[in-house]
């Protein structure tokens, strides 16, 4: 045993740590000064989706890119690889250090970004939330693609109408901690309790954003509850998975399905009439609108009701909250309109 070597190398360990420690002490606790970016003429807008490598947010990116080119702003678009609020915070910190002019966040966990919104604002960076809101965070503006309550209710209303307001229904959802999906789910359940007392919710299945798992679980549900008549699937992978399950179980027409998904994934099932409808909004428009509003904010122009935004029209602010812009009503996709309304996703 080489004790000599052991004691010998220990100073190295200390030294290495001391270097890092010293560097750390230098850092202090206060906010540090600026890196660079002074004297840059173009506005720089950073856009943070819930996660990357997913068609929905990619479509938002496309819209954002076009809008940024149109107004002449520089767009940074990046985000975490899994829907994690903590990782989003790291992005916000990076961008604060790079002194961007505006940060547009689609928060995974609305409460998690509070401290970082404050930090950004203390550096004179405008913060906009889009896709889902972070109330009480002090963000400047929220671009609401569609109201949570309106969508949740639209889904259950649609299903109830298909099921004649009677019978057993089930839910397929990506995860129990995705903020948007669960808000819609809660509103749908509340609405079902209040308006459709004859309908009973029998099961909720977690599909982990996996189309095949959704298919597997829904197919099991169909066998476990032979009287099941309706399913609401809340995310873009659960709907095609559930549609496939209904198709394979040979229960087309007996079990009704609706949910939120993208036209590209749903087209074959809509054309085969396995489901009647699903819901979405225009994500390219959402991305574009967000960037244009961020640009306006960064330039110091007011955001008011009725302001004309190119490629969108007149702004529509929420009655209850003057810092919320409402983009649109949820669009109901059916066999008839799916070809006209294809948003390229």
């Amino acid at each position: 045993m080489n004790i000599m070597k052991l004691t010998h190398s220990f100073p190295c360990l200390l030294r290495g740590l001391a270097i890092l420690g010293l560097a750390g002490v230098l850092t202090g606790c206060g906010p540090a000064g600026s890196g660079s970016g002074e004297g840059r003429e173009s506005i720089r807008i950073a856009m943070l989706p819930k996660l990357v490598n997913i068609d929905y947010f990619d479509a938002c990116h496309k819209g954002a890119k076009e809008a940024a080119e149109a107004v002449g702003a520089q767009l940074i678009y990046d985000g975490p690889k899994s829907p994690s609020g903590a990782e989003q915070n790291n992005f916000i910190e990076t961008w604060i250090r790079q002194r961007v002019d505006a940060i547009c966040v689609a928060p995974n966990q609305p409460k998690t970004i509070r401290r970082f919104v404050k930090k950004a604002k203390s550096h004179d960076i405008k913060v906009i939330t889009w896709d889902s809101d972070a109330p009480q965070s002090g963000r400047d503006l929220f671009v609401n693609q569609v109201e949570e309550q309106a969508l949740g209710q639209a889904l259950i209303d649609d299903l109830a109408q298909q099921m004649d307001e009677d019978g057993k229904w089930a839910i397929a959802i990506a995860s129990l901690d995705a903020h948007n999906l669960n808000a819609w789910r809660r509103h749908a359940i509340a609405r079902a309790k209040e308006a459709y007392p004859e309908m009973t919710l029998v099961a909720t299945e977690i599909t982990k954003e996996d189309e095949n798992l959704a298919r597997q679980k829904v197919q099991t549900l169909l066998n476990a509850y032979p009287q099941l008549e309706g399913i609401i699937a809340f995310d873009s992978n659960s709907v095609p998975g559930a549609a496939e399950a209904i198709k394979r179980a040979g229960k087309v027409g007996e079990v009704h399905l609706t949910g939120c998904s993208t036209p590209k994934k749903m087209r074959p099932y809509i054309e085969d009439e396995i489901l009647e409808s699903f819901y979405l909004w225009d994500p390219t428009q959402l991305g574009g609108l967000t960037v244009r509003l961020a640009y306006r904010l960064a330039k110091g122009k007011p955001i008011k009701d009725g302001v004309e935004i190119p490629g969108y029209g007149k702004l529509n602010l929420s009655q209850s909250d003057p810092t919320t812009v409402i983009m649109s009503e949820p669009i109901r996709f059916t066999k008839e309109n799916i070809d006209e309304l294809d948003f390229g996703i």
């Binding site: 490598n53 690889k81 189309e211 994934k265």
Partner: peptide, 16 residues
Amino acid sequence: IAVTRLQAIEPGRMLV
């Protein structure tokens, strides 16, 4: 099997 049973292949997220 895993790839051909899907409607949409998501290289960044499948089977994580």
